[in-house]
Design a protein around this nucleic acid. Sequence first.
DNA 1: ATTGAGCTACACAGCTGCGG
DNA 2: CCGCAGCTGTGTAGCTCAAT
Length: 255
Amino acid sequence: MRADRLLSLMLLLQQARGRQLTAEELARRLHVSARTIYRDLDALSSAGVPVYANRGPSGGIALLEGWQTSLTGLTHVEVQALSAVAAPGALSDIGLSAALESGLIKLSAALPVVQRSMAEHARQRLHVDSSGWFQGREVVPHLDVLREGVWQDRKVWLAYRDFDGVASERVVDPYGLVIKADRWYLVAGTAERGPSVFRGARVEGARLLDEGFARPEGFDLAACWKAWCERFAERRASYVATLRVTEEGEAALRR
DNA sequence: ATTGAGCTACACAGCTGCGG
DNA sequence: CCGCAGCTGTGTAGCTCAAT
């Protein structure tokens, strides 16, 4: 309870952005007496929080401006990058958009005035939209199961229908989820081919198994995805070249 | 001098650990 | 289980300090 109040007190002072708050005001906000506020301020001060108080009329309590910089350790460029790429859209599919929103609020509260304005500056000048044109996000009915498998490092049984319409069943080691142009993909280890990519919308059934798995030593999701994308691009180029030699292929390409 | 703010001494209540 | 001591958290009342 007290630790919670100490945190709240610190955040209130941060949000005041250097403006002084009286002990009475803080006491009213935190539902305790002013005496308790003074004790909490002592505790914060002992913990190294640079809080100071001014006596007399127009006096009050405030934090040393700029102290938060050393708290977060973030550079201006890092703040801009985080603010610009924090796109909540895709995260709502896996239940993380609320966490992102609350996290951004906390980050904003923890930033000093200058960095807070830089974050807003970046947000108003760079927006990342991962969705594609003219089509909504693909429905992935078993995304919850895939997500739990990825989070908990547990094997997942999959019923999958591939690009050619061939249905199959298998047990995979779900390494990670990727969203690209509003389409979810599962990167998973398989007994037959090692790491493979499954399109989320083609997963027709999924069940979380009790058995866990060990991620491959040094596995990097981003690197694995990039390599798969490159191989996919090569295969597609080859496929397009094949289609071009027939009239039917030309028509297909035009479609 | 007045006023409004922080600061401090003192007391109380509840919790916890310990010994009988 | 009970009583005690110590610790922690809290509130009240009065003091000190600075601006007007």
